[in-house]
């Protein structure tokens, strides 16, 4: 079981590698099946995505592409639906009763519709990791926090788990701080360390895509800078989708930015262009601080 999972992950990352191009920042082609116009391949595509909380429509007809191994930021004022959109990708809404998806979110290269009824949300969450707004380590040891995803996947070999945990902690740039206290509680760490622990926990299972829901909104500026640095580095190996309230953060860490307003996608472009030369008035008003 354990080895199978790893093989699948390796195959998946090999496949990702095969059609991921450079990192040129070309304007996103709106149509075309793979749309590899010299840029990165498409990792996920939302088409006609509607989302409902009971009778309230929170997302309205979203069409958007997420580039493979690029950082895509979602910005917009409070209540615009950016977190709701993010949580569609790992079916977090399935945990809330009376919610409903319409449309599709296809994940490539295998072209599976993440929000289809017959796709198991657990399978989706095993492929797409998530880091939350408030650091939420389990009240277990640092080691067990990172090992948990591996254990859920049926990994039993102690040596293998130790190896993967160390790797994940290194990737999350927290190994040096915790290597001597792996058996301390995850809650004994500072807020910024806890958040990096949560990133390590999400990375341990080798996800294809990582969702960040305002990951630094509860952190101080120094801890924030470290997380941002980390996100930039993660771009090498995983597709990142990040919701942020902070426009400077979006400008610093992301390759692509989507501006959302009242449940709609207003504008989506290469980050540098969206911030310097927005195509829509609403975007310009928001990024110049006229509202939000």
């Amino acid at each position: 079981m354990a080895t199978q999972t790893i093989e699948v992950n390796e195959v998946a990352s090999a496949m990702r590698g095969s059609h991921a191009g450079g990192t040129d920042r070309l304007r996103v082609a709106v149509e075309g099946e793979r749309a590899v116009a010299g840029g990165a391949a498409v990792k996920a595509r939302a088409s006609g995505l509607n989302f409902f909380y009971g009778g309230t429509q929170a997302l309205k007809g979203l069409d958007m592409e997420i580039r493979d191994r690029q950082v895509t930021a979602l910005i917009g004022p409070s209540g615009c639906g950016k977190s709701t959109f993010l949580r569609c990708f790992n079916r977090m809404h399935d945990l809330t009763p009376h919610t409903r998806y319409e449309g599709s979110i296809h994940l490539y290269p295998d072209d599976i519709d993440l929000i289809a009824k017959d796709v198991d949300p657990i399978e989706v969450r095993m492929r797409i990791g998530m880091v939350f707004q408030k650091p939420n380590p389990f009240p277990k040891t640092i080691f067990e926090n990172v090992a948990y995803g591996l254990r859920v996947r049926g990994m039993r070999s102690k040596a293998l788990i130790e190896e993967e945990v160390e790797k994940a902690l290194r990737d999350a740039a927290i190994w040096d701080e915790v290597k001597d206290r792996l058996n301390d509680s995850g809650l004994s760490l500072s807020g910024g360390q806890q958040q990096r622990l949560c990133i390590a926990r999400a990375l341990a299972t080798n996800p294809e895509m990582l969702l960040f829901d305002e990951p630094t909104s509860a952190l101080d500026p120094i801890a924030t800078a470290r997380i941002e640095e980390l996100i930039t580095a993660l771009r090498e190996r995983v597709t990142v989708l990040i919701v942020t309230h902070n426009m400077q953060q979006a400008a610093r860490v992301s390759d692509y930015t989507a501006f959302m307003y009242l449940g709609e996608l207003i504008e989506f472009d290469v980050t540098s262009r969206l911030f310097t030369n927005p195509g829509r008035k609403a975007t310009e008003d928001y990024i110049t601080g006229r509202y939000g």
Partner: peptide, 15 residues
């Protein structure tokens, strides 16, 4: 038990 803890576990693929 905070909802955030449950979400963390669910997000890792737990049943």
């Amino acid at each position: 038990v905070p909802r955030a803890i449950r979400e963390a576990a669910y997000a890792l693929g737990a049943t």
